[in-house]
Design a protein around this nucleic acid. Structure first.
Lengths: 223, 223, 223, 223
DNA sequence: TATGAATGAGTATTCATTCAT
DNA sequence: GATGAATGAATACTCATTCAT
């Protein structure tokens, strides 16, 4: 799997700032690492895809954002498709980490699932959320599509496993793990659709509300 | 409100048949109604968008499916964008109907919501599901985008109202109606993503499983 | 084998005229056949390739010559490569015909070879000569390259066969058929290089001089 | 006349070795002459042009072969065009030498011509053969094209002169010197086309076969 | 009604070339 | 001597759209 190149912490920090000065602006001042520039390219792409969609974003758009010329992008990335792919990877990596962490720990399965879903929601609300969720399979070549499918499947399986563990340890009530995983993922993924327009709540708040719904259900609880 | 151009009854009927013979094939025999042909165009578009995505589908593709030439499409539809818009309308109309019906009726709000969600899920699993859910706002002109947003908002508001009614009549436990509506819609909309590949369950079964999850929640119920 | 689409008779006729009016110039006047236009496209390409080389010729160049826009070319031809391929076919077809005719006939093999070489030389001097001879294998896709190789090989084999027949019937003296075929073909193909600049002699005259050299050799003959 | 930059002796030597280690590999060990490196650049270019054609060869390709970066090439050569030009010069120089030598000597003209043609054939079969023969005039700037034409013309004139001398001294039978020179050159130049694929015979063998054909002709000789 | 023919605008991609280091 | 980084110019190809017939 391609290394997760964009630092998630940086991501959060940067989101607060209104403008992200392109690393090219001060060429000689910041003798920045090539990797940093590559990350900037990928992030700019993610933002553009998020804002206008993959097909409505031209490489010229991305280059203009970075105040660079188009061929420069090719210095860092093989082609437009790879740009999308890298955005996807950057987005899904924290999710994978969340589910990896959820496998261990002494808590019951429902508790561990909750923790993973919280981080999941935050990833979806990041710059890369759109790419992770809305990018069309059809826009990728066969080999990259396979990669993407595998990664998505990994998440799906991890979620199902936690559900099964919850059924076993009694922390989760009767349910079909597969359908439940689809429902949970769907609700969370959908955040990528509306969060762009409606940022009235933080990702954490949204996640909390969602988790509460999933755990308690609509039907009133006597307890 | 834009006219609902695809007859939902016809839609249901046709779904059963394995092949949808193009109305042009027997040009002179069936002097069919212009409306029927228009519907066929829109349905063919929906299928193609569903299969390949909006941007990866050319008008030539759609025309070829119908065994017609490209300019013919323009006889029935103003442009590609409108094709997408009509598909959206065809998809969302049954959902609107479902929520209209849900307003009346003697049952408690949770029961009425459940009924609406069942029909919602079935609409998402239809040919038009993809267009309703995955079509990008960016691919529509301002005026059409406004239309779409209004329709989507109508659904959203209807769902929230039912939730509030449930809170009031006691059939639904404490929850944030807005977040809950987002979660419900997300889970259901997401069906459009995976239903294409995984049709192991019928739309009704999926809906039932989802509704059960939403109603009961993950936490085991003592009752 | 792809059909030979350019009428060789037309080709000869047209060569005499100084200017080849594009069929588009008088759109309504000449309701010309699509095939004719396609031929015009291919011929224009051949001329351009001949004059500037394949890589130095842009589709815009060809389109401009025809007073058409670039996409129009794509209406008649799949891509630039196919343009080259068609030119090649148009060029080699008369040569194939010449060697087909040379197989039959009561004359001795050397006489039949002479007749074929005369027609060969004329083909090389035509508009399509360059494409036939100078087009690089590397500019074609695998499948088309295979086609081209097969056709070239057919000519080569036919020439060798005539040489062997000449050895057998005594009309040709001792020689290595393979090397001799290479030498003959080379001398004739080379015409495509210099004929553009030096048209002091007609193709027939050149061919006659070449054949005389090949037949008699440099060494003086006592007879 | 442009300096002959690639040492022909070196050329011959190197051809025997299986691998041509780039002079850069052992930077500090061999503090080699700048000229040697330049020669290596030109030879690498010739090989690449030969294998893939001029336009299908990027400077990156050549640089990669030499395990150098692209700008380094510019240290040795002004631009891509000059690379082609130098290859041409490297190829034609031995041919010029051959014809210079052929002017003197006590033998009759046919004998002297034969000797020159043998060396000609060997030059065509060298790494530089393709560049000498197949390089398109159109790929060179005006000034370089003029240079190339002059050199080619020199060879042509030398060949014609030998033919005329042969006509005069009786060693060559009646023929048109110009056409005959074209035929001879064409047959030999064509070797560059097929020798890459078919190396079943050495350059010397090919040349011998060709010369035999040219001298004796196809018609059987009574003597 | 339907189509053949044509086009304009756009877009990804390549590559020779430059220059500061 | 050599390179990393960047660019400008060019070019093949696509596709929605139009219009005369």
């Amino acid at each position: 799997m391609p290394a997760m190149s964009v630092n998630p912490v940086t991501v959060q920090r940067r989101e607060a700032k209104p403008s992200h000065p392109s690393p090219w602006r001060s060429r000689r001042k910041a003798r920045a690492d090539r990797g940093l520039k590559r990350d900037a390219v990928i992030r700019a792409a993610a933002r553009a895809f998020n804002a206008r969609g993959y097909h409505n974003t031209s490489l010229d758009d991305i280059a203009a954002t970075l105040e660079v010329t188009k061929p420069t992008l090719y210095y860092y990335v093989a082609n437009k498709e790879q740009l999308l792919f890298e955005c996807f990877c950057a987005g899904i990596e924290p999710v994978r980490a969340a589910f990896r962490d959820a496998r261990a720990g002494g808590a019951d399965a429902r508790t561990r699932l909750r923790a993973a879903l919280l981080r999941y929601a935050q990833a979806i609300a990041s710059d890369f959320g759109w790419c992770m969720v809305r990018a069309e399979d059809q826009d990728l070549s066969d080999s990259m599509r396979a990669h993407v499918k595998a990664l998505k499947s990994e998440i799906d399986q991890a979620m199902r496993r936690l559900l099964r563990e919850g059924l076993a340890d009694g922390s989760i009530g009767a349910c079909d793990p597969k359908m439940t995983a689809f429902a949970l993922a769907g609700a969370l993924n959908w955040i990528a659709h509306w969060y762009r327009d409606d940022q009235s709540q933080s990702a954490a708040q949204i996640a909390a509300a969602f988790v509460a719904l999933f755990e308690n259900g609509l039907k009133p609880r006597t307890t």
